[in-house]
Amino acid sequence: MESFDAPDPEENRKIAAESLVRKLRTRSLSISEARTVLKTHGLDGAQIDDVLDDFTRRGYLDDAALASQLVESGSQRKGQGRVALSRALAQRGIPRDVVNAALDELPDDDAERALDFARTKARSLSRLDAETALRRLVGQLSRRGYNGSVAMTAAKTALAEATFGGRPSGVRFVDSD
């Protein structure tokens, strides 16, 4: 008859740490996300804290660096505003003070970034009537985390530029003489 002993706590810790390393190879994790990974391996609170402390000391886990990276990529690549960035960081379990510090590094140019995004979208809305185009563009900006007044101003400006600089609309009368 086989005897089933309880798993060796040190072996269990090692397996959990290896699992966390595999996850970190594919994607940066917040400390909160890493804690969740370790919990799935049945470690107790002290063991989890020990692994997290070790990974943090080695620089594998760094909420501040991750927050800065996410703010940079979210604002530059995705054109996200502060609200969307804050929400994304909070969803990753990054503490509020770290989120605020990362957002403080961001230049206060929400209006400019919103306008840049709106300009890229305005041309594709040219086939719509002005009211529908404005409503859709403001919606897109709002979903990207820009507040109402910034979204409205950027949308109006971009649509006006697209209309003014775009192809003329309406009927043309040509003198045939």
Rank of each mutant, 00 (worst) to 15 (best):
F117H: 12
N12P: 00
A130N: 10
E33C: 00
K14H: 12
T40A: 14
P95Q: 09
L52F: 03
A16R: 00
R127I: 11
V51N: 01
T56R: 12
L134G: 03
T26N: 10
V51W: 01
G93K: 04
I94P: 00
A16W: 02
T26Q: 12
D129T: 04
G79C: 04
Q91H: 11
I15L: 08
A88G: 08
V99L: 01
D44L: 01
T56C: 00
I94D: 02
L115C: 12
I15Q: 01
A16E: 03
H41P: 06
D116F: 09
A17L: 05
A17F: 01
S28L: 11
A46I: 09
L20Q: 00
D108F: 02
L128S: 08
S32V: 09
S19P: 05
R119L: 07
S28Y: 10
S28F: 08
R35A: 14
G79T: 01
L52I: 15
R113P: 09
R119P: 09
L115T: 15
L43P: 05
V51Y: 03
L134S: 08
S124L: 13
Y60C: 07
E105H: 08
R113A: 09
F55L: 06
Q91L: 15
R92I: 03
S73M: 12
N12I: 00
T26I: 08
L128R: 14
D110W: 02
A133Y: 01
V98L: 07
V21K: 07
T132L: 11
R13L: 13
P95D: 10
A34E: 06
L134V: 05
L52E: 07
R13C: 02
R113C: 06
Q76L: 13
E72K: 12
L85I: 05
